[in-house]
Design a protein around this nucleic acid. Structure first.
Lengths: 337, 337
DNA sequence: CTGAAAGCGCTAACAG
DNA sequence: CTGTTAGCGCTTTCAG
């Protein structure tokens, strides 16, 4: 650490007051005269004093640190979430430590114990794709640490959750394809072990059914979100006698890849095949044709999660269980016909 | 915190040994018999003990936390950087706290004092666009806290820096445009207050000069990285009697926008105008035509920065001052003719 | 309004 | 190999 870290004792000695007085003055306690407060503040500034949060945390049993766990920060959605969390945290005087699960359940557990060791005041987490057992989270809850789940949540856990209506979003996306004239609508889903993707698939199915459109097993494929899986699915679909004339993907990245494959195969989008993807990403706007999407408000979700954590940290009792953030269908060229 | 946090004293009492023995055993000190170690570890597991890092940090005067400061995590490059940092940090048993400057010098200062309060063991920072005075960083250095600057650095600061050769990258990009037959190459620069963008502009100018191509002031515009500025620049260029036949942008986002504007104006890319952008972003590959770029290895830069921090934390003396990471010209459709 | 004293939970000499 | 004793720097009763 610093060469010669200066402490409240140093400034207490210089001023001939007790360390406790210094502490109180610096914390702006209302039972210290303005005069001594000023004296102490001046001296503190003069010596370049700066609070040792570690000591303060130990004493107060509160760190003002929030643990944030996401699959990976380098995916647009999660970076939005983290950004939103940080903004609010910063303003509230909290710091965030972030950790990536890389979609590994094992790492998720490790991170949780790490957070616990760090004595974070709260945790915001998005479950990994692998996660099915959530007892490690129950332990957190039992310890009384505020927890807010975000996007990929588990309803087994008794804590606030910030989500979007995946079923509704998928339903809207597919209904939009139906309205724009698609008859053979295919669905490229995500990892079905993850509820989020299951819900989106369900939304697809329900929209198809409501529209009275037939559902073929061949039109209902899923991926592990990898480019490779998208390529295989598209190969299947493009070589069918009756190729789909509309494709709804449960994920932004897979949508981008799928649309690109179609375009490069010389297929006219949206005339021959329309595309809508669940999720937003700046690339949706840049590509030609631009890609329609169900926009998920990542930043806003992060902010809400942090807000809820903050309230719990301030001791407010949280009655809210689940906040459903509005999604929005953005119709772009890929499905405008 | 936890309901009944259990401490080393609890397990010491249970086992009739001294707390220090417990501490040593748990830290796997080599001067504790395997027998008592096992005993202690078992008891710790039984009670569900888990180290209080705050207390440990205070005592050891070391937090194992690294402060990471970037303009904004929701920009692809920075999210890559952060991701790289986190990966390495995690493996090394370090945690990272991240803070966004939002390109504000003032906030940068605040964050630094925040990091200082947190007693981070090291800091990785990317300067904000606004930053010109860097005395707040000198203070950090004077305090002996390891600092590594990344991408947007200041050579006034005596610390390791991870950068790319901006001049060279720009030079390569423009030379590539020259080779592919462009004669009227324009440059869309970034905020010139930031050395990074100045270097890229210089690279453009030098490449033009070396190629013996004339440099018109009108062909040399710059932006604040906003979409709006790009629109204005493109309006100017597209309405000129002699429109540019090649455009090099100093930034990924501005490149994406510029290329889109051209495409939408019915201009054939790359035949009529070729594009190359400095910086990578997944969107470069998705758009049609795909956008050529100078790839900047964000993840790798983050890893190197963390590596350097780690070495300094382990007391190794760092003689390295600046690591120049290799950039790579990726030729995609937007400039392939 | 201010001081004295105890303690947060862990680590690190110093003994033995 | 293990115990004793001081702290780390701050906060917080409890007095006065």
């Amino acid at each position: 650490m610093a060469k010669t870290t200066i402490t409240i004792n140093d400034i207490a000695r210089d001023l001939n007051v007790a360390p406790s007085t210094v502490s109180r003055a610096l914390n702006n306690s209302n039972k210290i005269s303005e005069k001594t407060k000023d004296l102490i503040r001046d001296k503190a500034a003069e010596l370049g004093y700066d609070l040792n949060m570690v000591a303060s945390s130990l004493s107060r049993k509160q760190t003002n640190i929030i643990g944030v766990m996401v699959p990976s920060v380098n995916r647009h959605f999660f970076s939005q979430v983290v950004s939103g969390i940080e903004d609010l945290a910063y303003d509230a005087g909290y710091r965030i430590i972030i950790a990536q699960t890389n979609e590994l359940a094992e790492r998720e557990k490790d991170i949780l114990t790490l957070f616990n060791s760090t004595r974070v005041d709260g945790i915001i987490a998005c479950l990994s794709l692998e996660t099915s057992d959530v007892t490690h989270f129950s332990k957190i809850l039992k310890n009384g640490i505020p927890l807010v789940l975000i996007d990929r949540v588990s309803y087994e856990l008794d804590c606030p959750k910030i989500v979007v209506d995946n079923h509704e979003g998928a339903f809207q996306a597919v209904s939009h394809l139906v309205r724009s004239g698609c008859k053979r609508i295919a669905h490229l889903g995500g990892p079905m072990g993850c509820p989020v993707f299951k819900e989106r698939s369900k939304g697809y199915l329900d929209a198809m059914q409501k529209a009275g459109l037939p559902i073929h097993a061949k039109y209902h494929l899923s991926t592990d979100l990898s480019t490779r899986d998208v390529q295989e699915a598209m190969k299947v679909w493009l070589s069918m006698p009756e190729t789909p004339d509309g494709i709804f993907t449960s994920d932004s990245h897979t949508g981008l890849v799928a649309a690109k494959i179609a375009t490069e195969a010389g297929i006219r989008v949206p005339e021959e095949i329309s595309f809508v993807a669940f999720g937003d990403d700046p690339a949706h706007e840049y590509i030609t044709p631009s890609l329609s999407s169900i926009e998920v408000p990542g930043n806003e979700m992060g902010r809400s999660a942090m807000q809820l954590i903050l309230e719990q940290c301030l001791g407010e009792s949280i009655d809210v269980q689940t906040i459903i953030k509005p999604i929005q269908l953005i119709i772009r060229s890929s499905s405008f016909r």
